[in-house]
Structures are given as structure tokens and as C-alpha cells.
């Protein structure tokens, strides 16, 4: 009965398509409503339905968010903090991952256990101690060598970036990726007289490039999203990251929904652009990461 079977299959396909469309609509609606609201005037928001189209595309909220709100500067701060943090993190993690997987050195298992413990350390639970340590950095912000009393690196870019410079998870993931590569690759290089540094840069790093991208994106994303740390460390608007900017903006413009929606959308645009360009790499990388 090939005919009925085909028919059953195509009706199954239709049901699945309807379910997928329904799920996608649910996920899309909040963003659609936010975009539509951001184009309206404040009075339109309360007189028209939230799914109705605005009268033309009114960009004044976006303009106000960028000029009065200072979001251009907040975005730049976030890009600096998350960019530097994730770049240092991925370089340090790739090198350490390589050493932990491929280079026997004294104390290697101790270092690996340290990585495993830090992997399970939730960063938000370290903020108090990090805050106290950052405030005590010697010779910064009015501190002496050991005498605190000053503000250390609080309210500075280095202080803002510090927690994102390393993550146990990145080191652990990089080690696992390097373990998956055959050792013979290195042997031929060693016989040719390459140094360990050359082998690493020329042979191994290119092979695990998809994984490097995943670790870079994860590091960037976690630094970009963080609200708690910059809330504690950045005390002047010139150092606010975009997440801090969003919360202060909300308190300042309560119930001005077009402005608040515009601020939420502007804050997401850089990440949309990053994912747009990195999407292929991310999927390739996730496929590579050994979820087999």
C-alpha cells in the first residue's frame, strides 16, 4: 500500500510543520512586539494594539537612547570588556589545554585537578571576594603596597575586565579537544625538528580552530551578559557596560516603553551581528566539540 503510506507520511509532515511554526511564533512574538513598540510614540503605545503596525518607522526613540541614554558609549565599553576578556581567555585556555593534553610536565595532574575544581566554581558566588581583592590591588587607586584604603582597580577598565580573563571551563574544553587529535601528527613534526611552539601554532591550532571559535564565543557571551560584576565595579556612567546602562535607563524612564524597548534592541544588535557572521563556525564547532 505505497499510496496510503505516502499519504500518511505527508500528513505527518504537515502536522510537524504546523507544530514547528507554532513554536517559532511563540519564540518570535516578544521580539516582534519589542520592535513594533520601539517604533511607536509613547501615546500610540497606550492607544493601539501591541501587534498593530506603527504609523511609519519612527526612529526617534533609538536616537534618544543613543544620545541622551549614552548607549553608544555603553556598547563600546561592553565590546572592550567582553572582547579583551574573551581574547585573553581563549589564548590562555588554548595554550593550557594543549599542555594538559599533550605535554607531560611535572605537576600536570595537580593542575588538571585545579582546573576541574574551578570549573565547578560559579562565578557569581565569587563576586564578594573578587570585589575585595580588586579594591586592594597594590599601587592602584590610592593603595600602597599592602595598605588598602584606596579604591584599587574599582571603577577602572582593568577591574571590569579581570574576572573574564580566564575560565576553568575553557581550559577544560580545550584540553578535551586536543585529546581528540592523533599524537602521530606531532611526531612527524618533531622529527623534522620543529619546536613545541611551532608545532602548536602550525599544526594543532589550525586543526582545532572550530573549537577555538566556540570557546571564544562562549567567553564573549558570558562577559557580555554579566550584570552583577559591572554593577558593583563601575560607579561612573563613563564605565557602564550596556547591561548596567539598561538597568539604570529603566529606572530613569519608567513606563516610557518605546524608549525602553529601543534600548533593549540596541543592546542586542552587536550580538546579532556577531552570531550572523559566526553562525556557521558555531555550528561547525558544536558539531566538533564531541557531543557524539
Amino acid at each position: 500500500m505505497p499510496y496510503t503510506k505516502r499519504k500518511r507520511r505527508s500528513s505527518r509532515r504537515i502536522v510537524l510543520s504546523i507544530v514547528a511554526t507554532f513554536v517559532s511564533i511563540i519564540f518570535a512574538i516578544p521580539i516582534v512586539v519589542a520592535v513594533l513598540t520601539s517604533f511607536k510614540s509613547n501615546s500610540q503605545v497606550f492607544t493601539t494594539s501591541s501587534l498593530s503596525l506603527p504609523h511609519g518607522i519612527n526612529l526617534s526613540s533609538y536616537w534618544q537612547v543613543l544620545t541622551e541614554g549614552g548607549f553608544g558609549h555603553f556598547l563600546l565599553n561592553s565590546l572592550i570588556v567582553a572582547g579583551i576578556g574573551s581574547a585573553v581567555q581563549v589564548v590562555a585556555a588554548t595554550m593550557a589545554g594543549y599542555a594538559l593534553a599533550r605535554l607531560p610536565f611535572p605537576g600536570r595532574s595537580a593542575v588538571f585537578w585545579l582546573v576541574l575544581v574551578t570549573l565547578m566554581l560559579p562565578p557569581q558566588l565569587l563576586v564578594i571576594a573578587l570585589f575585595l581583592l580588586v579594591a586592594r590591588v597594590p599601587f592602584a587607586g590610592g593603595n600602597g603596597l599592602l595598605s588598602g584604603g584606596g579604591t584599587g582597580l574599582l571603577n577602572s577598565y582593568p577591574g571590569l575586565i579581570a574576572p573574564y580573563l580566564i575560565s576553568g571551563l575553557s581550559v577544560f574544553l580545550m584540553r578535551q579537544f586536543f585529546l581528540g587529535l592523533p599524537e602521530e601528527l606531532a611526531d612527524s613534526g618533531r622529527v623534522d625538528g620543529c619546536s613545541e611552539g611551532t608545532l602548536f601554532v602550525r599544526i594543532f591550532v589550525p586543526l582545532i580552530r572550530p573549537a577555538v571559535w566556540v570557546v571564544l564565543l562562549l567567553g564573549f557571551q558570558s562577559a557580555w551578559l554579566d550584570l552583577l560584576w559591572p554593577l558593583l565595579v563601575a560607579n561612573t556612567p563613563s564605565l557602564y557596560t550596556v547591561q548596567v546602562g539598561l538597568t539604570t535607563f529603566q529606572q530613569e524612564y519608567t513606563a516610557e516603553w518605546p524608549l525602553i524597548m529601543a534600548s533593549a534592541i540596541i543592546s542586542s544588535i552587536p550580538v546579532v551581528i556577531i552570531f550572523f557572521f559566526a553562525q556557521r563556525r558555531l555550528e561547525k564547532g558544536l558539531a566538533f566539540t564531541g557531543f557524539k
Partner: peptide, 29 residues
């Protein structure tokens, strides 16, 4: 011996950062 030296060098940056930014804070806490 070359591998051993390289291993220490390669792991050093991450190790120092982990000690300053994870181990020291948890002990401080």
C-alpha cells in the same frame, strides 16, 4: 625535556590567572 619545559611555559598564563582570579577569591571568601 623539551616537552616538559614547553608544558610549563604553555600552562603558566592560565595557571597564574586561575590562581589569582579563582583560587585566591575562594580562599579569601
Amino acid at each position: 625535556a623539551g616537552k616538559r619545559r614547553a608544558g610549563l611555559k604553555f600552562v603558566a598564563p592560565a595557571l597564574v590567572l586561575l590562581i589569582i582570579l579563582d583560587v585566591a577569591p575562594i580562599l579569601t571568601e
